[in-house]
Write a protein that binds this DNA or RNA. Structure first.
Length: 758
RNA sequence: UGGCCCAUCGUCUAAUGGCAGGACAAGUGAUUUUGGAUCACUCGGUCGGGGUUCGAGUCCCUGUGGGCCAGCCA
């Protein structure tokens, strides 16, 4: 369901290491608006992962701010997510249910000296916070006694203060480069009643406080959210570390997905509704789930879409064609085919009298379903205006004067005469039909195409609403002016059309394909048997139309963007900021004694820790300083920088031992990396090599059989290689190296392979 | 004069350091009583520059580009 990604990788790891035995995720919407397509993606990851791992999925209303939150929204979100197919069983929660616990935990923090009541006014707090480039200042109230904090906080809760008079903050670090850590606010006073807790509280927890603790309370294992919360993770960890034991939840962030021709910002959606640009939150053009549902889009197709859009750590904008594909792909095998005419053109069959009820299959032959309805045929028909051309363009496969066409499920007709009204507009076609062309009994007349049609006296009038993309540009937010300037004026076109009489006897909520037009269903609000209203869910792919606009499309094609950056920036020379001592050291490392390249020497010297480490290592093994430098720069430094840093324990002389083994060619580079990884666990290089017998194999007579084995096992690859696919040399190398347990001398292997493949 | 995150076909996404693959889009053809669907094929990519390595999309440095952080919002 959810395709593998960096999060499932983490989960796999947590499960195999036993860090968690079960996966518990949650989706935490705030009930202050309607769910939209963006929510489906996030909730899909949460629900899908829990489901895939046989774990638990919680729906939690993140209601920590009484302003704007309403039960009505919570209910709508529940309805929408249920419709989507997410199943949380009994696990529906409200952050507001945790208010007592959260309050108790705040007391604990205060008692531990980790939280304090600040009484600075709002603007001062903002000022004291500093900026992204300047550290903040500590509040004069930061060092109040525990007793005073306890008393003030209790009085805050009791409603003794006005909004803004006091707040509760975590005591972390006002100088942190991470702004979120500059004593984040935990509680604020809000004299507002809450849609669930009423007037019980006048202090409310902030998201940054309530969210991690709610996760921990519920036993969430993997708390997944979007990228803009990366900085918040620091508070998340701080709080959970201070208040909970292992196993505790961890937060992981994924990239958001936006959709072309769509916006989901709550503010902008409201503007669309209030400005009358759409009919409401469930207007079929809206990206809300309510809108999608009313339009007729199936939950299956939305799920399929979400699974086709992958998960990564980058914000991305998805091609809307992918959504459209998912919708069509689902409906293709679900929607019976009927006929509907959007813009009728009258056709009189001169040589036909009376009426016939023809049997017409609901399904094309490539769909393994059966069923049919009766279709009335008579002297006067309607066809689609588009399906007739007085002067047909090249490649036109429909009706034109003197030409034949198949009426879908019925006869072949020929156009004999075109009748126009006073204004010159075509008002009617006179055609003749071929009685022996029905069904398989083809009259011998060849036709290029088949068109849809309806019997004039039997067809039902219907309002047909043709919905299209809401915006005329893929990224309205990236354009000049406001997004409202880019509304697609043709996002809704209403037609007075005709449909088959059979629809009246179909079940409510039936979706159809109007052949050659698209997928439709009756609008669930506005349609009735007396006044039919059909919504177009999605048009059919139209390769004829695509072909027609091709020259234009070529012109519109984006000019090839040069991928190369226009300017090549000069790296800042770090030597400029070096002290005299560092400069002296640089000279030393670049001298013949050490012989390091300039860049490597600079890199080491820029970090005192590294240069000291380097000097110690070279002291322990002086034979190849450059090799030592390479290992420190390319391998060791990464480990030193890692969060959990076992490398701190790796002594310079131990690394020197590894360098010696490499330099003496006792082990090859590939093995060296394996050994290095094990050394982080505290063993020494020589011990690892001896224990596991990792010495390099340099004897051709030992290697050659391995090569023969690999070549024999892959005759096709050998063939391809000899045919010029030299990229396969890496494949052979890899196979042979693997066969040798990684121990073969790679240069030797390479030479031998090349010799054998000549 | 900050910190953090990110960069693979047009789009989205894969590739224990070892054959850059898939899907959508586009194109060609087959098939078709839907210019749909289906099938086959084609087109097309590792942001630039250095380094490590037998071998780099993957590791290191750097440049460029993009995103996020200074609500008593979430």
């Amino acid at each position: 369901m959810v395709s593998p990604n960096f999060i499932t990788e983490i989960i796999d790891n947590d499960l195999t290491t036993g860090k968690h035995s079960e996966v518990v995720t949650r989706f935490p919407p705030e009930p202050n608006g309607y769910a939209h397509i963006g929510h489906t993606y996030a909730s899909f990851i949460d629900y899908g992962i829990a489901r895939d791992y046989g774990g638990r999925f919680h729906l939690r209303m993140d209601d920590t701010n009484p302003e704007g939150e309403r039960m009505e929204y919570a209910e709508a979100i529940i309805e929408d997510l249920t419709w989507l197919g997410w199943d949380w069983g009994e696990h529906i929660y409200f952050a507001s249910d945790y208010y007592d616990q959260l309050y108790a935990m705040a007391i604990r923090l205060i008692k531990a000296g980790k939280a304090y009541v600040d009484s600075l006014p709002e603007d001062a707090i903002s000022e004291y916070r500093g900026t992204v480039t300047e550290p903040g200042k500590e509040s004069p109230y930061r060092n109040r006694s525990v007793e005073e904090n306890l008393e003030l906080f209790e009085r805050m809760r009791a409603g003794e203060f006005k909004e803004g008079e006091h707040i509760l903050r975590a005591k972390i670090d006002m100088a942190s480069p991470n702004m979120k850590l500059r004593d984040p606010i935990l509680y604020r006073i809000l004299h507002q009643s809450h849609y669930r807790t009423g007037d019980k509280w006048c202090i409310y927890p902030m998201y940054d406080y309530a969210h991690p603790l709610s996760d921990a309370i519920e036993g969430i294992t993997h708390s997944l959210c979007s990228l803009e919360f990366v900085e918040n993770r620091a508070i998340y960890d701080w709080l959970v570390d201070n208040l909970f034991e292992e196993p505790r939840p961890r937060q992981y962030e994924f990239g958001r997905r936006s959709l072309e021709y769509t916006i989901v910002s709550k503010r902008k959606l409201i503007q669309l509704v209030n400005g009358g640009h759409v009919s409401g939150w469930d207007d079929p053009r809206m990206p809300t789930l309510a809108g999608l549902r009313r339009r007729g889009v199936t939950p299956e197709s939305i799920r399929d879409f979400a699974s086709r859009v992958g998960t990564s750590r980058t914000n991305r904008t998805v091609d809307i064609a992918l959504l459209e594909y998912a919708i069509r792909d689902d409906l293709n095998h679900k929607a019976p085919r009927i006929m509907g005419v959007l813009e009728p053109l009258k056709v009189v069959i001169s040589n036909y009298e009376g009426e016939d009820w023809l049997e017409a299959d609901y399904w094309p032959s490539d769909i393994a379903k059966s069923g049919s309805r009766k279709l009335p045929f008579s002297k006067t028909l309607y066809i689609e205006q588009e399906d007739f051309a007085e002067r047909p363009p090249k490649g036109f496969k429909r009706l034109s004067p003197g030409e034949h066409v198949r009426l879908r499920h019925a006869y072949v007709i020929r156009c004999d005469e075109v009748i126009k009204d006073e204004s010159g507009k075509i008002s009617e076609l006179r055609c003749s039909y071929f009685p022996d062309s029905l069904g398989e009994n083809v009259s011998g007349i060849k036709v290029k195409g088949a068109i849809h049609w309806l019997s004039a006296e039997h067809a039902l009038k219907a309002e047909i609403r043709l919905y299209d993309r809401l915006f005329s540009v893929p990224n309205p937010d990236d354009e000049e002016g406001t997004f409202l300037d880019y509304l697609n004026p043709e996002s809704l076109i209403v037609k007075e059309g005709l449909v088959e009489p059979s629809v009246l006897s179909d079940a409510e909520g039936s979706r159809y394909q109007f052949e050659r037009q698209g997928y439709f269903w009756q609008d669930p609000k506005d349609s009735s048997p007396e006044a039919l209203v059909f919504n177009r869910i999605i048009s059919l792919k139209d390769s004829w139309a695509t072909k027609q606009v091709k020259p234009k499309a070529d012109k519109e094609a984006k000019p090839a963007q040069p991928k190369v950056a226009a300017s090549i920036g000069e790296p800042l020379d770090p030597v400029l900021s070096f002290s005299n001592e560092q400069k002296a050291k640089l000279e030393k490392l670049e001298s013949k004694v050490f012989g390091l390249s300039h860049d490597d020497a600079v890199m080491l010297i820029a970090d005192d820790k590294l240069v000291n480490y380097f000097e110690d290592a070279v002291l322990a093994y002086p034979n190849n300083p450059q090799l030592t430098a390479n290992w420190i720069i390319n391998e060791l430094r990464r480990e030193l920088a890692a969060d959990e840093a076992p490398a701190q324990k790796l002594k310079a002389k131990d690394l020197a031992e590894l360098i010696e083994l490499i330099n003496q060619e006792t082990i090859n580079n590939r093995i060296a990396k394996e050994v290095f990884a094990e050394m982080l666990e505290g063993k020494t290089a020589r011990a690892i090599v001896a224990e596991r017998g990792l010495e390099q194999v340099t004897d051709s007579s030992e290697i050659e059989p391995l090569i023969d084995k690999v070549l024999a096992a892959n005759p096709d690859k050998v063939e391809a290689y000899k045919g010029g696919k030299t990229g396969l040399s890496g494949f052979f190398m890899g196979q042979v190296m693997r066969e040798s347990g990684g121990k073969a001398n790679p240069q030797l292997v390479k030479e031998l392979i090349e010799k054998k493949l000549q």
